[in-house]
Design a protein around this nucleic acid. Sequence first.
RNA 1: CGGGACGUGGCGCAGUUUGGUAGCGCGCAGCGUUCGGGACGCUGAGGUCGCGGGUUCAAAUCCCGCCGUCCCGACCA
Length: 581
Amino acid sequence: MGGPLGRYPEPSMRLSNAFVPTLREDPSEAEVPSHRLLLRAGFIRQVAAGIYTTLPLGVRSMRKISEIVREEMDGSGAHEIRMPITLPAEPWKATGRWDLYGDLLFRLTDRHGREMLLGPTQEEVATLLIDGELPSYRDLPMNVYQIEWKYRDEYRPRFGLLRGREFLMKDAYTFDRDEEGMARSYDVMLQAYKRVFDRCRLSYAVVEAEPGQIGGGVNHEFMARAEVGEDLFVECENGDYLADQKAATPMPPEPAAPDALEELTRVPTPGASTIEQLSAFLQRPARETLKCLLFDAGGEPVAALVPGDREVEEAKLERLLFPAPVRPFEDVDFETRGFVKGFVGPQGLGEGVRILADHSVRGGANWITGANEIDHHVTGANTPRDFRVDAYEDLVSLRDGDRCPVDGGSLHVGRSIVVGHIYQLGTRYSEPLKARFVDEDGIERPYYMGSHGIGISRILAAAVEQFHDEVGLRLPRVLAPFDVVVVIANRDDDRVVAEAERLYEELRSRGADVVLDDREETAGVKFADADLVGHPVQVVVGRRGVEAGTADLKLRATGDRSTVPLADAAGAAMDLLASAP
RNA sequence: CGGGACGUGGCGCAGUUUGGUAGCGCGCAGCGUUCGGGACGCUGAGGUCGCGGGUUCAAAUCCCGCCGUCCCGACCA
C-alpha cells in the first residue's frame, strides 16, 4: 500500500499503450481555464456535479503535489496516518458539528440504522485517536496528518476541481499541552506550508482570515492568486499588509470637524426606501447618507451604521457579537419591533437597540438618514446631539482604494483560490470530546489543538489557472505529470524509431519521468498534444534530424527551441529540464 | 435553495419557431495515398433525440411532470 492514490507507477510510459484521452475541442460544460484544460488534456473526467475520475496524468500530478506535501510535513515532525472516510455520527453530535454542518454533510445510514457520514474533515477522529493513545504530557506535542479524499455536499460545486464535492486534502492535527505549545506547532505548520506553496511555484498570499465552520481563533489562509478565484483578499500597494477581504480593516478616516451643525430636519422622501433612490431624490451623494441596518443577534436587536456608499461586512459583525448568531432583520422583525423598513434612522432607536457605528461614521456629520416614518428621512443628523452610538467598530466591507491600516497606502482587492488554511483550535474539540492528558502536576487537561488543511486537488487546478496559455497547460516541472516527452515524428522510419527508443531509455536511466509518444498519429497531432499536456521539455526525433544526426528540443515554458547532436540529446534535455521553471 | 441556460451517435453542434425519412464536423473501423505543427480519398459502423406521461393519423419538435449538467448568489481545501 502506498498511500491513497495507490502504488507508485512506472516512472515512464509509452503513449501507444497508455490511457491519455486528449480532446480536440473544448468540452461544453467547462468555462474556466483549469476545468477546460484538465478535461482536454486528459487529467480528469466528470462523473457527477463536483465529482471526477482522476485519469493517469491527473494521478501523476496529484501524486507529485502529495509528495511535496509529504516531504514538508514529515520534515516538520508530523506523522502520516490514514483515517477512515466513513464515520460514525456520535462524535460529530458531541462537538455540535452534526448540526452545524447541516446539508453540507453527506449523511448515510448503515444496515442497523446507525447514522454515519462521509468525512468532510477529521478533527473528531484525530482527537479521539490521540485521546485514546497519548494520555501523558510526556507524549506531547503530537502532529498527525493524512492525505485523503474529503466529502462535502457543496451548495454549488463548480469550476471542475476548484470546488468539488469530493476533493483530495492533506489534513494535519496538532496536539499540545498548552496555548504556547499550540502556537509553536502552528508556526511550524505555517512555515511548512510556505515551503509547500513555494515549491509548487504558486503565486500566493498568506492572510489572516475568518474562522468559519471549523471554529477557533487565530487562523491564516494561503490564497493562490487567480482571476477565477472565489475568495477576495486585499493587499497594500506598498506590500506591507495582506488580509482576507472579509477580515481586512481599513485605516479609519480623520474625524470630521464640521463648520456648523445643521438643524435636524424632517423631509418627505416618497418611495425612496433605498440609498440609491434617496440619493437620486435628494440630489445628494450616497456618502452623505447614513445607512442604518438592523440585525438580530440572538434575539437582541443591533443597529449597524455605515456611510450610505459602504456595505456592512456581516462576518465582522458576527465576530463582534460572537457567540450570538447574527442575521439581518426580516420583514416580520420590522413588524414585531415596530421599525419602518427602508426608513430606519439611529435617532429615536430606543435603549433596547444596541447601536454600533463603523469608524468611518466619525468622518462625517450632518447625516441624511431615515426618519423612522414611512416615506420620510431627516437631514442634519448628528451624534451625540441627535443619536447615540454605543460603540465604534470596524464594520465596513473593505473595497478597492481603501487605505492601508499600516501605512495608509492604497489597498487593492484581488481574487484568489484558497489552497491552504491553518487554525488554532484551542480546546474547541478536546473539551466536548473529553479528550484529556495528565499534566506534569497530575491534573487532567484538554489538549490544545490545531487543524491544518491543504487542498491537493485544488492546488492542481490553481496551478493550472496560474500556468497555462492558449494551447494548453504549462505546469512547473515539479507538478507536471512527466518531465520530458520524446516525440517520434516519423513512425514509419526504423532509424527514427530506434533513435527515439534509445533516447527514451537513456532519459529514463538518467532519472527523468519520460513519456514516449510512439502513437500512430501524425507529427502535428503529437506536437499539439505535447503542448496541451504541457510536458516541460519536448524532444523531437524525426527523419530530417536523424539524417543530420540531430534532435530538436523545446522548452514548453518559453517556447524556445534548439537543435542538438543526437548523441548529446539526452544530456541536453536533462540540462534544459533543470533550467525549466 | 432562489434566478438563468442547456440536454440530439464518443466529443462539438444544427434541426425544435411552423409536428411528417435524424443531419453536419471531429473522432472511430477497413483499404489506399500521405508523414516535422491537429493530412487526404473511398468505404463503413455507431443515435431509446435525458426519463415518464399526454395531445395527434404522426412527436427530437406541442403540453405536463421528473431527472441531469452548466452559469449567477449564500458555504469551504
